Amino acid sequence: MTRSGTDRRLSDDEMASWLPLIRLVQLLPQALDRTLREEGGINHAHYAILVTLAQDAEAPPTLGEIARIAGLSRSRLSHALDALARRGWVERTSCSTDKRTGSAVLTEAGRDMVRRAAPAHVAQIRALVLERLSDDERETLTHLLGKLLPGIESAV
Rank of each mutant, 00 (worst) to 15 (best):
H121Q: 13
I49C: 01
E91C: 07
L144R: 13
K99S: 09
K147F: 10
V122W: 04
S73A: 10
D12L: 15
A16P: 02
S78Q: 05
E139K: 13
P61C: 06
E108M: 07
A48S: 13
D112Q: 12
G5D: 15
G41W: 01
P29Y: 00
M113Y: 01
R138A: 09
A118W: 02
S134F: 00
I22E: 12
Q124M: 14
G5T: 15
K99R: 10
E108R: 12
E58F: 03
R92C: 02
A70P: 04
E65D: 14
P20C: 05
A45V: 05
G40D: 03
T2P: 11
S94I: 09
S78T: 12
I49P: 03
A117Y: 02
D33I: 03
A127P: 06
P20W: 04
A120L: 05
L10K: 13
V51F: 10
H79Y: 14
L24C: 10
L21D: 07
T35F: 01
A31Q: 13
Q55E: 13
S4P: 05
A54P: 04
T2F: 11
P29V: 03
G71S: 00
N43E: 10
L149I: 03
L21E: 10
D135Y: 10
A155I: 10
P61A: 06
P29N: 02
R100G: 04
A54W: 09
L10G: 09
T142M: 08
S11P: 05
A54N: 15
S4A: 15
D112K: 11
I125D: 06
M1F: 13
I66T: 00
L77V: 04
R74A: 09
L81V: 08
S73C: 03
V105K: 10
L24N: 11
G146H: 02
P150I: 01
L72Y: 00
L106W: 07
T6R: 14
L145I: 11
E14R: 11
P60V: 03
H121Y: 15
V129C: 10
D56T: 12
L32T: 08
L106H: 06
E65K: 14
A118T: 09
P150H: 06
E131C: 08
R115L: 11
V90K: 00
G88K: 08
S4N: 15
P61N: 05
G41V: 03
R23P: 01
G41S: 02
R34Q: 13
E58M: 07
S94T: 12
